[in-house]
Design a protein around this nucleic acid. Sequence first.
DNA 1: TACTATTTAATTTTT
DNA 2: TTAAATAGTA
Length: 720
Amino acid sequence: MDVTRILENLNDAQREAVTAPAEPTLVIAGAGSGKTRVLVHRAAWLIDVEKLSAQSLLAVTFTNKAAAEMRARIESLLKVPVQHLWIGTFHGLAHRLLRRHWREADLPQSFQIIDADDQQRIIKRLIRSLDIDDGRFPPREVQYFINAQKDEGLRPQHLDDDNDPDRRQKIALYEAYEEVCRRGGLVDFAELLLRAHELWRDNEDLLAHYRRRFRHLLVDEFQDTNAIQYAWLRLLAGPEGIPFAVGDDDQSIYRWRGARVEHIQQFQKDFPGARVVKLEQNYRSTATILNAANAVIAHNNERMGKNLWTEGAAGEPIRVYAAYNERDEADFIVARLRDWSAQGNARQDAAVLYRSNAQSRVLEEGLINAQIPYRVYGGLRFFERQEIKDALAYLRLISNRDDDASFERIVNRPTRGIGARTVEMLRSYARANACSLWRAAGAIASDPIGGRAASSVNAFMSLIERLARETQGLSLENQVDHVIGMSGLIEFFRKEKGEKGVTRVENLEELVSAAKSFEPDPAGEMAPIDEFLAHAALEAGEGQADAWDDCVQLMTMHSAKGLEFPLVFLAGMEDGLFPHQRSAADPAGLEEERRLCYVGITRAMQSLYITHAEQRRLHGSDSYSLPSRFIREIPDECIEEIRPKVHVSRPLRAPERRPAARAPEPETGIRLGQHVRHGKFGEGVVLNCEGQGAHARVEVNFETAGTKWLVLSYANLDLM
DNA sequence: TACTATTTAATTTTT
DNA sequence: TTAAATAGTA
């Protein structure tokens, strides 16, 4: 056995974690401290040194990318493939279990997975069909409610309406939604986890079997687990299982979608005496960057506490640039990126991070002008594209006629004379007879007095039947090819004007090649087409292709988690934008924003620039804000302030169209963006003014007191 | 049924 | 500003 290969190049803390005895272990791994490394080496250690069969390990991650990377790295360390090692996402593993045990899970054998978009469509339809005011119950909110319940492991029957009519309504919708899914054999993402949990909870023998098999549970990004994921892990671990969880409480940024950092504390309660290892040595960033990150995150109360350090040098100071507006900010960043390239650096080593996607626009404009290639992360993924989902809906309907979500999607796509009226008729029939739309269509199509609608519906049904017949026995690739051609989809999109249609047709052709290169599990019992459909739902594909081009990377701070770049810009560091207005109100929200800031700072290896704009056009109108409070939390000695150069000052702008209408009070000297001081509220910036003379009021965004409207004649503001 | 005008709202995202 | 959803019109 070659212990050295597994242990070399590990520091003491990493080694302690990797070689820990077979006991519950919690690794608190700071940013850049070698988290994945520890996980990978732990797996290799268990297999190679402890001589455990790869079969007895289960490794779980949040993203497919992380799962693939982990497998690859374990294999490269062990120098052998580890096919029998279960590595996957929570959803992927749950799906695997449900396919194996669909009977016990009370699912149809060829159940289909629906994504968030499908789910929303179903809910929207449901709200309408039940004649519920969708103003009071927006589909998005209902969807959020349902998923939140599922994430907590709750079924409608577990819920109490608390005598709140709104809540009662939502519970009723949850129940109705469940029924639609049951009838259509549809499973959403949250349902995968919930079902998998119930599967084990209610089948003693099954649970015992998996407990016997999986002795070691390796968990990545543990701070991101939601209640049902944690419950699932705990159930599997049982009294004997040995969980090895790796996470960082300071990088928990997904509370809003159910993640609970508290599981880190809970872990120590559920597994008393669990070994806790902290990884604090950082191999990524300069000491200056780490000092800044440590100082910022130290302002949070709810944390385990840890301090990143490095053996490396202090490095450059963090540059803070105060831009006049978002254009100036973009110009500054573009100029720095030019320098970066001119000095012989690779563009892909530079990243511009921002809080919200809308910020990318100005940056992109600047980059296009300067002819700097860039790549924006997080666009539409391949399998999420409209035309792709249409094609998949045909395939799904062929596989299962009762799939109402797919039925609705394609019944009139391409248009075949089945309009809103006809669909409404189908829906009400389906509702009255508690059957699927397909069955309703059957009833209506056979109605001799149905008229034109009946014949259109009839034509649609025979098309589907024909496609089903014709694709039987064909290879996956040919099935897909046949369906997109004969369904009329290709023709439909070809007619679409502009470049869009061309791209759509190309994408459909791409789908055929995706089907061609898809390798179904030879041992799997599923029909290859169902496997392909599940794959499409669980792995929506890359957001943007061509990662190999030498491009500057643009992304949100959320999507930057886990990545690192020699040069990083944090753009739009202004109060209201970051921390975002909508999170700043409650302390927990603010702490999460601060963790996000910590994530952002720790992405930088060598150089970090922080920029903020005094004035920013947001949603069409100008807003004025103060530099983010997070900037102030960085120690002064880490920072070098860069003043805007006079000659880049306020870019030429057309004169105000209506100078008089919105003009600030000339005699008061108050203008938008003016910094002011108030006796009680402190310092702030003028956001807005209205009225004149004695009635004039101004809206001021105060650093500490928030945004307030003040009557000018009483407020006694000092100009600054 | 398809196209056009108007209204509305606007973090963060993986599966 | 702008994208998307809805309402209204040809």
